[in-house]
């Protein structure tokens, strides 16, 4: 199997992130600063949703169906209580975006983290141990690559729901989603980490460490892992953006979070039903919000990749 050519592993420790070069490159590009600010703003809003959002759209008792489908405040019939209008159930769009971002970000961050841990572990083991173990892990990766993330996530979701007792569904739907998106993304991490590990393990310092009797776990953890943090971080940023979109697409295909606690993706998907009837705000505002968030994360990831790659500086 040919490994995907990913950004070459920069030989840098995470500590050097904030050395003057990177910092300089950061403050020099306004677009990157903007995308960082936007990303942070989203994360903050999501984190502090109960204090930031004007309403709590997840509190069913507070929603009134009679408030539904109101346009944004600057249009005729707009209601001052709802800045960006309301959706088909009477939820405030602005609040639902904020709360939805909370869910979307939670799901995608957790999924990325899950992928990362799984991918790094398997990659390290695969690269370091080699032989049959390596062959098996990489073969599984091949099998998985045969299917797009969406398909895997969809199927995993179906199985997990089938296996678990049904009355748990409402509570665990979100974890199922995390698991499904997470498991569909580990291969990239594993391949990158394996590549770096193969290179590092033959270096003299690792050989030396081995000779003096340091155990493999410590070698992997102390000596090899730090070398792969750069590329892994880059993959993670891009993967975060993809995870957010995957979550939205899964909603479109009907496997997502419960409709009473919509994510941004669910909101877009629901709003799509109202695109032709003129209630564009239900889908367009969350759509813009999602695009801006993903764009910001991507731009930041781009910059990070270039900045971390010493050859490009």
């Amino acid at each position: 199997m040919i490994d995907a050519p990913l950004p070459r592993a920069p030989r840098t420790r995470i500590g050097r992130f904030f050395d003057s070069d990177i910092w300089y490159s950061f403050i020099r590009s306004p677009l990157v600063i903007l995308s960082a600010v936007v990303s942070i703003a989203f994360f903050a809003a999501a984190l502090f949703a109960p204090w930031v959002a004007p309403h709590n759209p997840f509190d069913l008792a507070s929603i009134d169906l009679l408030d539904s489908s109101l346009p944004p405040v600057w249009l005729e019939d707009g209601d001052t209580r709802f800045l960006l209008g309301t959706d088909d159930q009477g939820r405030d769009i602005l609040s639902t975006i904020i709360y939805g971002a909370r869910i979307s970000l939670f799901v995608s961050l957790a999924a990325v983290f899950f992928s990362m841990v799984l991918g790094i572990t398997l990659g390290l083991v695969s690269g370091y141990v080699g032989g049959r173990t390596d062959a098996i892990i990489m073969r599984i990766a091949d099998v998985q690559l045969a299917f797009p993330a969406i398909l895997i996530a969809m199927l995993i979701d179906g199985v997990v729901r089938g296996l678990l007792p049904r009355d748990l569904h409402g509570d665990i739907a979100i974890y199922v989603l995390i698991f499904a998106i997470g498991i569909s993304g580990w291969v990239q991490y594993a391949r990158t980490v394996r590549g770096s590990t193969l290179v590092e393990k033959n270096k003299e310092y690792v050989q030396a460490a081995r000779v003096i009797g340091i155990g493999p776990v410590i070698i992997l953890w102390r000596h090899i892992l730090p070398n792969v943090t750069g590329p892994v971080l880059v993959i993670a940023t891009i993967h975060l953006a993809i995870a957010i979109i995957t979550e939205a697409t899964l909603s479109f295909l009907g496997v997502g979070v419960p409709p009473t606690t919509p994510s941004m993706g669910t909101l877009i998907q629901v709003g799509q039903d109202y695109l032709f009837s003129g209630e564009w705000w239900i889908t367009i505002f969350p759509g813009i919000a999602l695009a801006v968030l993903v764009l910001a994360i991507n731009l930041f990831g781009d910059w990070l990749r270039d900045a971390l790659n010493p050859k490009l500086r």
């Binding site: 509190d59 069913l60 008792a61 929603i63 009134d64 169906l65 159930q89 009477g90 049904r166 569904h169 409402g170 509570d171 419960p258 409709p259 009473t260």
Partner: peptide, 17 residues
């Protein structure tokens, strides 16, 4: 969904599947 939010007003917590 609408039924769930209406029933929430009489204290019934409906988990929608």
């Amino acid at each position: 969904q609408a039924s769930a939010s209406m029933l929430a007003k009489i204290g019934v917590k409906v988990n929608l599947l």
